[in-house]
Simulated assay, not measured.
Amino acid sequence: MRHPLRMAMAALAMAGGAGGARAGEDPLAAHLWTRRVLVVSGPGPDDPGLRAQRQALASARAGAGERDLVTLEAVGNSVEAASLRRRLNLPADAFRAVLVGKDGGAKLQSAEPIPPERLFATIDAMPMRRDEARERWR
């Protein structure tokens, strides 16, 4: 079974091979009003914060899918990484994690990996998420 988190990460990787985000385009536009996005940024693939965030998310896949949460990584100096960092005003030389709501706005930002419990609590407190939960129980 395919998981939304893996599919989103694969889609981002494929977008990089196809040219990725063009100058002036919002790299998060494809997710607007459909998904929440956790953008994880690190200077390189071996960044300890990046590794810790990946590990934390690996144990929370079901909760992420239930909350329409996908993860995009801005790692290294690719065009896509630079575009995501520019969009969210993130440094290229340090770890950052940013939760972006379905409306495209940053809801939570951290210089440390964000535990899934904190991500989910933040999402579950959002008015749109509360509406979604009510609709699912009807």
Results as ranks from 00 to 15, higher is better:
81 A>F: 01
116 P>Q: 00
122 T>Y: 07
100 V>Y: 02
22 R>C: 09
128 M>A: 14
109 Q>E: 14
10 A>Q: 12
25 E>T: 01
23 A>K: 14
39 V>C: 03
116 P>S: 05
69 L>V: 01
27 P>T: 02
82 A>F: 00
98 V>F: 00
112 E>W: 04
9 M>P: 05
46 D>V: 04
81 A>T: 00
76 G>E: 08
131 D>W: 09
56 A>C: 06
66 E>I: 03
15 A>E: 13
91 P>A: 04
3 H>L: 13
81 A>V: 00
114 I>L: 06
77 N>A: 11
39 V>I: 02
70 V>Y: 07
57 L>I: 09
73 E>W: 03
3 H>R: 12
89 N>D: 14
54 R>Q: 11
38 L>C: 04
13 A>N: 09
19 G>C: 12
21 A>Y: 11
78 S>T: 15
30 A>M: 07
111 A>V: 11
40 V>S: 00
15 A>L: 12
103 D>S: 03
31 H>Y: 15
86 R>G: 11
59 S>P: 04
102 K>E: 06
2 R>E: 14
31 H>V: 01
137 W>Y: 10
37 V>K: 01
108 L>T: 01
33 W>M: 10
14 M>G: 08
50 L>D: 02
3 H>D: 15
124 D>V: 06
78 S>G: 14
34 T>Y: 03
135 E>T: 13
29 A>W: 07
119 L>C: 07
126 M>H: 09
15 A>G: 15
1 M>L: 14
127 P>M: 04
119 L>I: 07
35 R>T: 14
91 P>S: 10
80 E>K: 00
119 L>Y: 04
99 L>I: 05
51 R>S: 05
51 R>W: 01
117 E>A: 15
94 A>E: 11
133 A>Y: 09
30 A>L: 10
80 E>H: 01
112 E>N: 12
37 V>M: 02
81 A>C: 04
61 R>Q: 15
51 R>L: 06
128 M>Q: 08
78 S>I: 10
57 L>D: 12
115 P>N: 06
27 P>C: 03
14 M>P: 02
24 G>D: 12
111 A>I: 09
84 L>K: 02
31 H>Q: 15
96 R>N: 11
83 S>Q: 13
32 L>P: 09
138 R>N: 09
19 G>N: 15
